[in-house]
Amino acid sequence: MSIVTISRGSYSRGKEIAEKLAETLGYECISREIILEASEQFNIPEIKLVRAIHDAPSILDRFSYGKERYIAFFRAAFLKRIQKDNLVYHGLAGQIFVQNIPHILKIRIIANLDARVKEEVKREKISAEQARQILVKDDAERRKWSMALYSLDTWDQRFYDMTLHLDTMGVEDAVSTILHILQRPCFQTTPKSLELLNDLSLSAQTEAALVNEFPKATVDAGKGLVYVSIRGSLIDEKRITDKVNRLVENVAGVKKVNVNIVPHSIKD
């Protein structure tokens, strides 16, 4: 009863490790499936979701909140899926959404750029220079994405339980190491940690229900009680509260909604 998220750069063999790990454990291995699920559930073109969780937000995105919208849908689908437990997720953004869930093992796979370039050249049949350029650009974009949206650097090791460097070990060794650490009690799902995950998922489902109307809404949930914070003028408090209640009434698991209007945010 465990969940593993694997964050990786392109061509760093993270996918291989995830698949091998899932196979050994008899778990489901997921990545792009989340995008497909979110696309179906919220009726959004797949390409927009892919771009939303890959490309750093532009100035225009800041005003249109397009990025927040798609990320909210992706996050809701992701958290709903991992509630099922016993799975290995590899790909973008996963570890960011589950930072506060202690039992989920968050792994970062890294490899030397030269090794990654070699792998890309082998797979994509392109020149080494081209491969290098693509990888450097790709890495920078992903860092910018997480920095812009969550103020987190995906290269910061503090956000992971373990970092594996594939220069000093092979895929088999990496899988074996992960399997070993996964046996520790702290990475086993407990009723309490599952409750945390359920609350997080409920807040994500609520956020997804609200995001079209209130793209900057933040939601906190606990045991069916949902606390929604929304930017807006206090003059509109009643209208906003009514609207939130209407939008959230069909979200499964919501017992009561508390709306908090945030009229301003002033930094020191």
């Binding site: 800041r62 005003f63 909140y65 793209p215 002033i266 930094k267």
Partner: peptide, 20 residues
């Protein structure tokens, strides 16, 4: 932000606030 106090609320600006 102390010298230019408008920087204190600048990040709060979004399309919703601009419209209002």
């Amino acid at each position: 932000r102390r010298i230019f106090p408008f920087l204190r609320w600048w990040n709060f600006i979004g399309w919703d606030t601009v419209r209002a």
